[in-house]
């Protein structure tokens, strides 16, 4: 399930970004190009950060970027990017950010299985570090596959 969503076309590694908005847009662009979301969804995520604060920095170094289905999701999808240079999102405890996972959910249920597989992955420090430091997509996909068994 997780590997259906996070396949090689949805992963970009060691990206150089200027600031947090730029980093969010890099993640949403992958989904935008694949026609999974509208431009409005990207704006909704950025507005969420501005209005609600950096709560989407869910753990040290990790952002789960998302807005609501009605903000412009066409298809359940996810993307994963790692940043070459860590970026501050304004989170006192969890900055700087190195990994951004963008989630586009179509409702409040369909994505939950993949999301639970993802959190199991993020909670394994070794596997998380392999992803954060990965030089190739294969390294990332190997880890993702490990958590995609249902």
């Amino acid at each position: 399930m997780l590997n259906d969503l996070l396949n090689k076309d949805r992963i970009m590694l060691n990206i150089v970004c200027e600031n947090w908005e730029d980093a969010i847009k890099t993640g949403t662009k992958i989904l935008l190009n694949d026609n999974c979301i509208t431009k409005n969804y990207e704006e909704a995520i950025i507005n969420n950060f501005k209005s609600l604060g950096p709560y989407m920095v869910i753990a040290p170094g990790i952002v789960l970027a998302h807005a609501r289905p009605e903000n412009g999701v066409k298809k359940l999808s996810m993307s994963l990017i790692t940043l070459k240079n860590p970026i501050n999102f304004g989170s006192e405890l969890n900055d700087p950010v190195k990994l951004i996972i963008t989630l586009a959910a179509i409702d409040s249920k369909t994505h939950l299985e993949a999301l639970s597989q993802l959190i199991n992955l993020l909670m394994n420090t070794n596997d998380l570090n392999i992803i954060i430091n990965a030089k190739s997509k294969e390294e990332v996909l190997n880890i993702i596959n490990k958590y995609s068994i249902t």
Binding site: N48, L52, Y55, M56, I58, L64, H66, A67, R68, P69, L103, A105, S108, H111, L112, L115, S116, L118, I119
Partner: peptide
């Protein structure tokens, strides 16, 4: 609780 109610709050619910 989380800002949107479908991402981080679900992850947190699992852990709780």
């Amino acid at each position: 609780c989380c800002g949107n109610g479908l991402g981080s709050s679900f992850m947190l619910e699992m852990n709780v």
